[in-house]
Design a protein around this nucleic acid. Structure first.
Lengths: 229, 229
DNA sequence: TGATGTGAACCCATTCACAGCC
DNA sequence: GGCTGTGAATGGGTTCACATCA
């Protein structure tokens, strides 16, 4: 554990690294040089022990009695996440959502860039979305191969999500981000992350309902519990 | 309504209920009447014990030796999540993302409907998005009150997300869905769920990077040795 | 002195395995 | 016999508290 740590990072900690990273980037642009786990915790709305434990998975990058050097830690997180390289991405589905994603600046700003958008609908093909020309889904494999794409985004309607996933896997994509509500069946070894808008709203609906029933955990009860993330 | 169990559902289980629900809806439209925990687990890509435990938080709605009645269970989940009522929603931010969300059919299909879209940008105000006319953010409070809105969506750029949250909270909204990458500071009791596209991509980036290094956890064998970066 | 890094304790979530009921 | 419902066991994640070191 001297110079290259590189054990596998626990899922839960991994999910927080991008949050810390974003905060560090902000601090960096404000020319803050050092940050303590206490401060980072405050900004990320978690507790300080968690911050330290999470960062310890990366290696020993802090200075006892002082804190963490912002630029250095930023770089280490980026490197660990693989953000020091550029990731070409392909989007399947050029509807409302696919277009919004292709035009979403947050993607390009972080080393991800859209190299292809495909759709089945002939009327979409040939239009330009997010700077690339929409192609037929049949060309997916050739795009993935010629551009060395590893990550695909599914932005199709639910009923076509599984075939989109199949096509991506066949084309050789290793990770899929799924915006359709479908639970995808993929071969072992393929990573899927699902972002489900309606699911999140339904959870909020539950929170609101229980809050209105007075069942929401309020600090003044014996069921002390907080829900917000 | 007094045959209710109504303990608080654990966060992790709560997050899976919408998934089961969607599957049940699909089964229902295929006229499937009964389903076992085994089948549900298969379709949701989880294990059967988890399905049973999750459903047990709702009450005792299965039949031993038989399974669950699709329509009945569907109704119970909907009721538990509060989906038997209609939830008015307001969107802050009428840019790319806000427009896509306002037009997203998945929202309206599930009892959520957009009753207001607000923005700061004068050029957006007055345009029609998702069937409603965009208003100035100053009108947020009056919209929230007149339409009894509980849930707000933040679809602004990062630098305006916190003020959007403040405005929503001041207006009386109890739950916020945040599409900006910002970690929002909100008063205790306000629920926030964050959907961060770039965050998800960064996690996929990590998976792909470790996969390429051969460090991806593969069930066969234990390769946890040092790989020079 | 002051903040990191980390074993140990704690707590929640998952899984097992079987009693209970149809 | 078959499948649910659930205590008990396990495992992972969080928090505590303190040894450690600049």
């Amino acid at each position: 554990m001297s110079d290259s740590p590189r054990r596998r990072i626990p899922e839960a900690a991994l999910g927080r690294l991008p949050i810390y990273l974003r905060i560090l980037v902000d601090l960096g642009t404000e020319n803050v040089a050092q940050v303590s786990s206490e401060q980072l915790a405050e900004l990320a709305a978690v507790n300080a022990a968690k911050v330290r434990k999470d960062l310890s998975y990366l290696g020993t990058y802090g200075t006892r009695g002082v804190g963490y050097e912002v630029q250095f830690l930023m770089y280490q997180i980026q490197r660990e996440l693989g953000l020091n390289q550029s990731w070409p991405i392909v989007i399947v589905g050029a509807g409302n959502l696919g277009q919004a994603l292709a035009n979403f600046s947050g993607i390009a700003e972080r080393g991800f860039h859209i190299v292809g958008v495909v759709d089945k609908d002939e009327s979409k093909i040939g239009t330009v979305v997010g700077g690339v020309r929409v192609k037929h889904v049949d060309e997916l494999a050739s795009i993935v191969q010629s551009k060395a794409v590893n990550i695909g985004i599914i932005a199709t309607p639910a009923q076509h999500a599984q075939e989109a996933a199949d096509a991506l896997v066949r084309a050789g994509v290793g990770s899929i981000m799924n915006f359709a509500p479908t639970v995808l069946a993929v071969p072992r070894g393929v990573n899927v992350r699902k972002v489900d808008l309606a699911l999140e709203l339904q959870i909020l609906s539950y929170y609101e309902q229980t809050r209105n029933n007075g069942l929401r955990a309020v600090p003044t009860g014996e069921h002390s519990d907080s829900v917000s993330a």
